[in-house]
Amino acid sequence: MTTTPAEPDMEGLQEAFDATIARNDRIEPRDWMPDAYRRTLVRQIAQHAHSEIIGMQPEGAWIGRAPSLRRKAILLAKVQDEAGHGLYLYSACETLGVSRAELTELLLAGRQKYSSIFNYPTLSYADVGTIGWLVDGAAICNQVPLCRTSYGPYGRAMIRICKEESFHQRQGYELLMTMMRGTDAQREMVQESVDRFWWPSLMMFGPPDAQSTNTERSMAWGVKRNSNDELRQKFVDMTVPQAEALGVTLPDPELRWNEERGHYDFGEPDWDEFAAVIRGDGPCNAQRLAHRRAAHEDGAWVREAATAFAERSAGEAAR
């Protein structure tokens, strides 16, 4: 802790903070910040970090079954990237005074969330491509604005992550494109996968603006830069031409170009389903957490051994 004056000038600190936000400058770890801002950031960054780590599971399940050695290498490298993203984000969160171990405990206790999309199962190899195309695509729409987020370490982590995510999205799309040029069975596999992932992908942007409890304040603080509905629209507009080029149908009868708005109109996701998944009642919520918990618990003895070894080595070095 840095020493603070006996009576800190709270008003002055708040003014300096507000001025930094107003100038679109970055808040850095040593700057004063309101507690609520800190809490909001921890919640959002941790949720994002957990999403990367939990997100390793649905795709990781297919590494062993990847149908070509090249695809196996691509998939393994991608899932490894997600572990790397988790690392950067946990590090960004640690600058706010919360350790990775604490955050992991909060995740395992169900007190912090991760992206709802990872509570859906991966059922065919096409899902690897669909996740790259739609899920990473949606993540990019969400995350590119975060490169300009007001908290410095988070924004800088996001710049690296976005670069890699867009690489993953291209790889996913390329897999689907290749499969579409393959056999009828492969084309059916791609369509079936897109049918399952389309609506959950739209839900990744969160509830409609009218129901989003956190959006307004996060936007005022420059933590968040666009509303859920704006980003959802952007994703749909970006994705429809890609689906056409791919030759798949997006499973929404209401989807059509609206000349007047200059955007695609689209149907309403099933928000009851979204609420259920968020509540913990999706198809894979329990499975994902159990997998993460097992890895964490199975590794406890290794982490303890590493700590004991490091302490002993440090002790010997000191003598």
């Binding site: 780590i53 990781g60 590494i63 196996k72 490894q80 890895a295 199975d298 982490r303």
Partner: peptide, 25 residues
Amino acid sequence: AEWCSRAPDLEEDIALANIALDLLG
């Protein structure tokens, strides 16, 4: 590669994937 998402910590998860990728290459 079966270790992926199952290692004792993220650093080991990444290292094991690295080694698996080298050998796959």
